[in-house]
């Protein structure tokens, strides 16, 4: 289901709005800056609409459709006029791309607007590979000591947006880095947004299972494209004393792995 509606050929220097995402904004802005760097390297003119807050997914997944719709309308307006909207998250991009049209399915005014935004919204690696045609976005800055990276596909990215090959394609170009799957690559980590707050013990059991899966695959990095999942995995790994270092794929592509990983003291 990768880009069912055939994407337009992008202009050489498309105007791209970054959907920062609430988690990246508050927890790890470094991922946002990495995304900006990668997009600029790919030739995009990046802007960060000031009116953005959150995509509304917490309300949408909690059954609060009225608030989800109100927030979605704000998002539609905040991101109007750009060639593309790009988020360093499959979950938030999936919300806009897969669920905004559903939110306004019977709305003659907002339905078409939601569909229009949906069609030009992408997750970062998906955008770089599928739209900008990037294969190698790495510069000399990306310093990675020889490492084996295990990739965890986030559920929304994988199943709502069909993202699987794109991050691996980009990571292949990082010198010294080998990318591997593990048996839990496509299985939920237990984060689930509000799920991990509502059912922390069930969420913990699921992430414990992923750690058991990870233990069977040798590697020194764990990478993914969604900060929520990565915080969950990193938080569990660090509590268990695992040496596995966790990064967002954009961080590795933009600047390597010299800095503090997710959950490491910075």
């Amino acid at each position: 289901m990768t880009n069912a509606d055939a994407p337009r050929t992008p202009p050489d220097h498309p105007r791209v709005a970054l959907l920062v995402t609430c988690l990246v904004d508050v927890m790890r802005p470094q991922i946002g800056f990495a995304a900006v760097q990668l997009l600029e390297r790919a030739g995009c003119i990046v802007e960060v609409p000031e009116a953005q807050t959150c995509c509304g997914q917490p309300a949408y997944n909690s059954g609060d459709r009225a608030d989800a719709q109100k927030i979605a309308k704000d998002v539609i307006e905040a991101f109007a006029g750009f060639d593309y909207v790009v988020a360093p998250s499959g979950s938030c991009a999936g919300m806009v791309r897969a669920h905004f049209p559903e939110l306004f399915a019977n709305d003659p005014v907002w339905g078409p607007k939601a569909a229009e935004l949906s069609a030009r919204t992408y997750e970062l690696t998906q955008f770089l590979v599928d739209i900008m045609g990037c294969k190698n976005i790495v510069t000399a800055d990306a310093s990675v000591k020889t490492a084996i990276a295990i990739y965890h596909d986030s559920c929304s990215g994988l199943r709502e947006l069909g993202i699987k090959a794109q991050p691996r394609t980009l990571l292949k170009a990082v010198p010294g880095l080998a990318v591997r799957d593990y048996s839990g690559s496509e299985t939920c980590c237990g984060f689930g947004g509000t799920f991990c707050i509502k059912y922390p013990d069930v969420s913990d059991r699921i992430v414990t299972q992923r750690l058991a899966d990870l233990a069977r695959t040798p590697g020194n990095l764990l990478l993914g494209g969604d900060l929520g999942c990565l915080m969950n995995l990193a938080g569990k790994l660090s509590r268990e004393g695992s040496p596995l270092r966790v990064f967002h794929v954009a961080e590795v592509l933009a600047g390597g792995t010299d800095g503090a990983s997710i959950g490491e003291e910075g």
Binding site: D204, G235, R239, G266
Partner: peptide
Amino acid sequence: WLATRDFPAAQ
């Protein structure tokens, strides 16, 4: 969450 997992620090 904190009962069984660390919470990765914000920057």
